[in-house]
Amino acid sequence: MRPHDNRAWLLILPALTLLGLVGALPLLAVINYGFHDIFTLQDVYWVGLQWFTDILQSDRFLASLGRSLLFSTLALAIQVPLGISVALLLLSYGKRAVWGLMLVALPLVVPWNMIPMFWLGLIDAKTGLLGPGLAAVGFDWKFTGWHTWTLILAVDTWHWLGLVVVLAYAGLSAIPPAYMQAAAIDGASRWAVFRFIQLPKIAGALAIVFLLRFVDSFMIYTEAFAINAGGPSDATRFLSLELGEEIKGFSYGQAAARATLYFLIVLAVVWAFVAATREREA
């Protein structure tokens, strides 16, 4: 058992100070801006809850919220099971799995703004490796909504699958061989081994995967904007794209109110998730 010692705070203080400066302080500022109309930094008027009521009552906001939630759900539903399957697949290769890990980690080091460019190059109808084939089967990501969705989901999966695989593999490879041997003696099925031994052991790693993937997909901007800028006819207009428009349009007060709302939504989901995880552990 770890001893109780409040002097440990001294060790934490430097990290806490830095996080306060680049995290807590700007967060308080953004919440404050949300209650003001900002023309310039010297020209600021109190507007109370007006921005918040405006945003919450607009149909566009609710539609974007729905789209972003759907996108996150789909991204998680695809990437988490796929990532676990790939991790299990790699595990069966023993020592050679390290090559697979390096392979899936590659997309993680590509600059974010270039990821959509890679894919647009790949599916370019004239010069792309996949372009002519996709054009022949009528894949039209510019003007057909669900084709754009498919493309963005594929790009997002390509980008982030490595993180899921690496963390799931880390959890799986830490399981002592004795567990597996015991299961083999009991004649446990492949599914039973996964459900009752492997899954509980990687729950901690999966929790962080779930949260990171939820937040990043919920606030997806770079890929979605570069691929179709919210189109066709708003089919991929996610929450972050609306915020981007307001910042570009210099309506800072409204943008801050919107940012605060997004933060609160993310916070609510994270809190619910952590509470659920703790309850399961208890």
């Binding site: 934490i12 500022a29 949260l211 981007g244 933060f263 993310v266």
Partner: peptide, 29 residues
């Protein structure tokens, strides 16, 4: 190595910082 008053709150706080979308903080930063 230690338990101390508020250690779980600290862990929760760093989790919140990790999941705060950058675009939310870009303007005040």
């Amino acid at each position: 190595r230690y338990r101390f008053t508020g250690d779980r709150h600290f862990l929760m706080a760093i989790l919140v910082f990790r999941v705060t979308p950058p675009v939310v903080l870009s303007l005040p930063i």
